[in-house]
Design a protein around this nucleic acid. Sequence first.
DNA 1: AGATCGGCAGGACAAATGTCATGAGGCCGG
DNA 2: CCGGCCTCATGACATTTGTCCTGCCGATCT
Lengths: 204, 204
Amino acid sequence: MTAPIRVLLAEDQGMMRGALALLLGLEEDIEVVAKVGDGDAIVPAAQDAGPDVALLDIELPGRSGLDAAAELRAALPDCRILILTTFGRPGYLRRAMESGASGFLVKDGPVEELAAAVRRVLRGERVIDPALAAAALSAGPNPLTRREVDVLNAAADGSTVAGIAARLHLSQSTVRNYLSSAIGKTGSRNRMEAVRAARANGWL
Amino acid sequence: MTAPIRVLLAEDQGMMRGALALLLGLEEDIEVVAKVGDGDAIVPAAQDAGPDVALLDIELPGRSGLDAAAELRAALPDCRILILTTFGRPGYLRRAMESGASGFLVKDGPVEELAAAVRRVLRGERVIDPALAAAALSAGPNPLTRREVDVLNAAADGSTVAGIAARLHLSQSTVRNYLSSAIGKTGSRNRMEAVRAARANGWL
DNA sequence: AGATCGGCAGGACAAATGTCATGAGGCCGG
DNA sequence: CCGGCCTCATGACATTTGTCCTGCCGATCT
């Protein structure tokens, strides 16, 4: 028998993290060598543990799993990356692929998929839900500019135009222009809808 | 050895559901007799399987775990209810207790807590994070009226006043009054903040 | 060099939103 | 039976928001 597959697990929910770690550990050929609950801890932990596969959640405290994936790719080129997320948003899948991930799993679907995906990814295969891939392609790329994303993010918590302008060091006019164009691009009628639409597409 | 503890598991995320079921099944004295991913399926499944403990997520498709808890309490008075949720919101805890739950667990914290909580609940103990209980008490009860909650919920997706009024069969003036008072009660400056604040407190 | 795009800003205008005062009816507890 | 609360509704008002147009700058592509 060959050496077990070394897996790094990044997931913020403690119970989920523990459960997945235990499950993967039950597999004969898999060993969880690092468990992390914070996005900023991913790269250091990986450099320390040297995993073969990194299993990354997207929504994490600190930097997101997608951002961490890009850095991990640079720091440990031989480590395969498998994104594991709650939300099968088209933009997430797109960004995951651009960040050099080898696979993209949603947290629905059976647990058995997980170990199977880890093995397939290590073999060099890509693991992507075909329906999700189709959705990502048909949705097209993110139409929002950097600043539009910034402004939507700043607006997401209910800040007023003045507050957003202050936070981003912009004039109120500029903020309203960005908001207006973001609303237009998302086909919405106001910021709330725009934020929701952009979120649903994984554009934030 | 006595008969194993019969557990019903309601959780919408397939991977989480499968992982928890497997983990609980590993315990010698616990048997998962029903797995459910939809709030409306809880009571029927419970009547079918006759569990000793029901482990319920709150955010579910169909009716929420809190609503299901109340019905379950009426249908199977001997079944203990343990709420398992992502969000430790004061209002959730309060409503859980009012619905007759015996315990309230957040999905952070170690997995080992879970089996331990199941056993303790069956023994008649209450399982509640003390810090969370304190927060729930200090936060006080939900200050929003039924209609204010309705209107906030309807506003949460970015609908305009006209849309909300149509959906709730109210006049636009009434909707604006409810919004205004909800904004006042939550200490917010607009609906977005009000929705966020109410959500954070578990008032929706 | 010219065209295009993104970032930034101002002004003017219409529409939506939030506030307030006021008042009707219903229901409950003291 | 009265006071208090909730529901529902108007109208008037100030503020905020969203739209549109104009303009400037720098980067990039052709």
